[in-house]
Nucleic acid binder design. Structure first.
Lengths: 129, 129
DNA sequence: GCCACAAGCAACCTTATGGTTGCCTTTTGA
DNA sequence: TCAAAAGGCAACCATAAGGTTGCTTGTGGC
């Protein structure tokens, strides 16, 4: 897969102040991708509501197999959204809110930039009318 | 273990006060999934920085084919993140910030719930020491 | 020491996804 | 009026993703 570099060609929509979003887009995309599945979203919701749970406990809240849950947890872990701790013969999973904060901040930036762009567009339209 | 069962009267993580997240999880997941790809994230960044662009213009900012860009735009559109307007022989795409706001709000909720859960856990731990 | 429970590993299957190419339709403008 | 630009449609390909089953390993309790 192409690495999606930060400097776009100058033709067309030049990167007029492209937000820092694009720079770390791979990490960020992996976070969004991890949240982009109903089952994982549910697991996150369960974890964020409860604290730390074992795989068996988490599996009980779903209707898929334990292995399925494990795979989802690994996806979430790889995106840095959850972390695990071994305790005895079980492994407890809990939320790691850092990346969630990061993702939230990105969405804030997008929204803000968009507002700026919109107002510029509007000003331009009014000026040329 | 689930710490102090203030609201959760059961063994596992039953739907103990699951946030409203889960209800509309499918729509929400599709939004996150749409953002969960570096190329689409870049397209969103370009759109949010610039206003409205044609497919050809957007393609010029990437290194994939026009058809590839079209597919990505359709994914974004299906998630409600962008919308299009036909103008002459070209089709202009622009951001639709509603769903982005929604996603941001969800992440806020997750973060908040998690804080609450954490403080409960902490209180419990301190009480039993 | 032994049994049962929690989890890990690995193979496998099916479908979705990201990307391509080739060709057709619509619109523009000289 | 007709060539070229913008885009749509459809087929195709490779690989990743979601899920399963079966078996092995590790731990705890009696």
């Amino acid at each position: 897969m192409p690495a999606c570099d930060t400097t776009a060609p100058d033709t067309g929509p030049r990167n007029a102040g492209l937000p820092a979003i694009v720079r770390s887009s791979d990490v960020l995309a992996s976070v969004f991708a991890a949240l982009g599945d109903p089952m994982r979203l549910k697991l996150v919701a369960v974890l964020c509501a409860g604290g730390a749970f074992s795989i068996a406990q988490l599996t009980a809240t779903t209707d898929i197999s334990r292995q399925g849950v494990t795979k989802h947890l690994q996806v979430l872990a790889q995106a840095g959204l959850v972390s695990d701790v071994k305790r005895g013969r079980e492994r407890l999973w809990q939320l790691e809110p850092g990346q969630i904060e990061e993702a939230k901040r990105t969405l804030e930036i997008i929204g803000r930039e968009w507002d700026v762009a919109l107002s510029k567009l509007k000003a331009f339209a009014e000026a040329t009318l």
